[in-house]
Measured scan of single mutants.
Amino acid sequence: MLYRITVRNADGEKLEIVVEMSEDEVRALAEELRKAGYEVRVEPIPEGEEP
């Protein structure tokens, strides 16, 4: 499935990426980023919607 991941650092800089991963993989990635001090938001992209 496609997911949009938005990551912000302490300075407020934002990075937005689209990935194709399983829900478990995305959850693990988000958890690791949060542990590293980043603010993370994950949104699933519905099938048929443009990323």
Rank of each mutant, 00 (worst) to 15 (best):
N9Y: 04
S22W: 13
G48W: 07
I45V: 06
L33N: 01
I5M: 07
L2P: 12
E43F: 05
V26N: 00
E32R: 15
D24N: 10
E50N: 06
G12K: 05
A30V: 07
G12E: 02
I5T: 00
S22A: 08
I45R: 05
R27D: 06
G12S: 04
G48S: 15
D24V: 10
N9D: 02
G48R: 02
R34A: 06
E25L: 06
N9Q: 09
V26E: 00
P44H: 08
G12H: 10
V7P: 00
R27L: 09
R41C: 02
E43A: 10
V42W: 09
Y3G: 00
V26K: 00
A30G: 04
A10K: 11
P51Y: 01
R4S: 04
R27F: 08
V19P: 00
V42P: 00
N9A: 06
N9P: 07
I45W: 15
A30N: 01
I17W: 12
E13D: 10
V40M: 01
E39Y: 09
V42M: 05
E49S: 11
G48M: 15
R34F: 07
L15V: 08
G37L: 01
N9M: 07
E16A: 09
E23W: 10
E50P: 12
N9I: 07
D11K: 08
R41F: 14
E16C: 03
E32V: 07
A28E: 05
L29Y: 15
E23C: 04
V40N: 00
T6H: 04
I17V: 03
E49L: 14
G12Q: 05
V7I: 14
A28Q: 12
K35S: 03
K14N: 06
V18R: 11
D11N: 15
E23R: 07
E43W: 05
E43R: 06
K14F: 15
V7Y: 15
R4P: 00
D11P: 04
Y38K: 12
I17G: 02
E13A: 15
P51C: 15
G48F: 13
A10H: 10
E43G: 03
V26P: 00
E31Q: 09
E25N: 10
E16H: 08
E23S: 08
A28H: 09
A36S: 04
E50L: 12
M1K: 05
A28M: 04
A36E: 05
N9E: 02
A10T: 11
E25G: 11
R4F: 08
A10C: 02
E13R: 11
L15C: 03
D24G: 09
E20Q: 10
P51V: 06
G37A: 02
P44G: 11
G48D: 10
M21G: 09
R41M: 08
E23T: 13
R8D: 02
E50K: 09
E49Q: 09
D11T: 14
A28D: 11
M1H: 07
E13T: 14
I45P: 05
P51H: 08
P44C: 04
E49I: 12
T6D: 03
E50V: 08
E25C: 02
V26F: 02
P51T: 09
E32P: 01
T6E: 07
E32S: 15
E49D: 08
M21C: 02
E39R: 03
G48N: 12
M21V: 14
Y3N: 01
L2N: 10
E13P: 11
L29V: 05
E25T: 06
E13V: 15
I5K: 00
Y38V: 06
L29S: 02
V40D: 00
I45G: 05
L29M: 13
V18T: 12
E31D: 06
E43V: 14
T6N: 06
E16W: 08
R34P: 00
A30L: 13
D11L: 15
E50T: 10
I5W: 01
V42C: 02
R41V: 11
I17T: 10
Y3Q: 01
A10G: 12
I45F: 09
L33M: 13
S22C: 03
Y3F: 07
G48C: 05
P46F: 14
G48T: 15
L29R: 08
T6W: 10
E31I: 05
M1P: 03
M1F: 09
E25Y: 05
E43N: 07
Y38F: 14
E39G: 04
T6R: 04
P51G: 10
Y38P: 00
A30C: 02
V40W: 01
E39H: 11
I5V: 13
R27E: 10
E31T: 13
G48H: 12
V18F: 10
P51K: 00
G37K: 02
R8K: 13
K35H: 04
K14E: 12
K35C: 01
L2M: 13
A36P: 14
E47W: 05
R34H: 12
A36N: 14
D24I: 07
P46E: 13
A30R: 04
E13M: 13
E23F: 11
E39S: 10
R8I: 06
S22Q: 05
E47A: 12
I5Y: 00
E49N: 09
S22D: 06
D11R: 11
E32D: 08
E20K: 06
D24H: 14
D11W: 04
A36L: 04
R41T: 12
P44R: 09
R41E: 08
G48Y: 13
E25A: 14
T6A: 03
E31W: 07
K35R: 07
T6C: 01
A28F: 11
E13H: 14
E31R: 04
E13S: 15
A36G: 07
E20S: 12
K14C: 01
E43Y: 09
L29N: 01
V40K: 00
R34C: 14
P46S: 13
V7Q: 02
D24Y: 11
I5S: 00
M21R: 04
N9R: 14
Y3S: 01
D11M: 12
E16M: 07
E16S: 07
E47D: 15
G12W: 03
E16D: 10
E20G: 05
K14W: 07
A30I: 11
M21A: 13
P46R: 09
V26Q: 01
V26L: 05
V19S: 04
R34K: 10
V42A: 03
V42R: 01
E31V: 09
E20L: 06
I17N: 03
E20N: 10
S22K: 11
N9K: 15
E47I: 12
E23N: 11
E23I: 07
V40I: 04
I17H: 09
L29T: 06
V19R: 15
L2V: 07
P44Q: 12
D24C: 09
R8M: 11
R41L: 10
E47F: 11
K35W: 03
R8Q: 12
E43D: 12
V26H: 00
R27A: 09
M1C: 02
V26D: 00
R4V: 11
Y38C: 01
M21K: 09
G12V: 03
Y38M: 08
E13N: 15
G12Y: 07
I45N: 11
E32M: 12
V40G: 01
E47P: 09
D24T: 10
G48P: 15
L2G: 15
E16F: 14
A36Y: 04
P46C: 02
L2Y: 11
E31H: 04
E43P: 00
A30Q: 05
L15D: 15
G37C: 01
M21D: 01
E39K: 03
E47L: 06
E20P: 03
E25K: 06
K35E: 02
G12D: 03
R4E: 02
E47V: 09
V19A: 14
E13I: 15
M21S: 13
Y38Q: 05
A36Q: 12
V40H: 00
E47H: 14
M1E: 05
P44W: 10
I45L: 11
D24Q: 09
E32Q: 12
T6Q: 04
E43H: 11
K14Q: 11
L2R: 14
E13Y: 15
E50A: 12
Y38W: 05
E20C: 03
M1V: 13
D11I: 12
Y3A: 01
P44T: 13
D24W: 08
A28I: 04
K14M: 09
E20R: 05
K14D: 06
V7S: 11
R34N: 08
G12M: 07
L33T: 01
V26S: 04
I17R: 10
E39V: 14
S22F: 09
L15N: 15
S22N: 08
Y3R: 01
E50F: 07
A36M: 09
V7T: 15
A36R: 15
R4L: 06
V7D: 00
R27H: 14
M1L: 15
K14S: 13
L33G: 01
L15P: 02
N9F: 14
L33Q: 01
R41P: 00
I17A: 03
E49T: 13
R34E: 13
V19I: 04
G48K: 10
K14L: 12
D11Q: 14
T6Y: 14
L33R: 01
I45S: 12
G12T: 03
A10Q: 09
R41I: 13
L29Q: 03
V40S: 01
V26Y: 01
E50D: 11
A30E: 05
E32L: 06
E13Q: 15
N9C: 03
E23A: 15
P51R: 00
R4C: 03
K35I: 11
E47Q: 08
E25D: 05
E47Y: 08
S22V: 11
R34Y: 05
E43Q: 12
K35V: 03
A28G: 07
R8T: 14
E39I: 13
V18H: 07
D24E: 11
I17D: 01
L33S: 01
E43C: 03
A28L: 12
L2E: 05
E20I: 06
Y3E: 00
K14A: 06
R27K: 13
P44L: 12
V7A: 15
E47N: 15
M1R: 06
K14I: 13
K35F: 05
E20V: 10
A28Y: 12
A10R: 10
N9W: 08
A30Y: 05
E32Y: 03
E25W: 02
G48I: 13
A28N: 09
E39A: 07
G37Q: 02
E31Y: 04
R27S: 12
L29E: 01
V26M: 12
A28T: 09
M1A: 12
L15Q: 15
Y38N: 13
V19G: 11
E25P: 01
R41S: 13
V7E: 00
L29A: 03
P51L: 04
P46Q: 10
E16K: 04
V18W: 09
P46M: 12
L33V: 02
R4N: 04
V18S: 12
R8S: 05
D24M: 08
E39M: 06
S22Y: 05
E23G: 10
P44S: 10
M21W: 06
E31F: 06
V19H: 02
R41A: 10
L29K: 14
E16V: 06
K35Q: 03
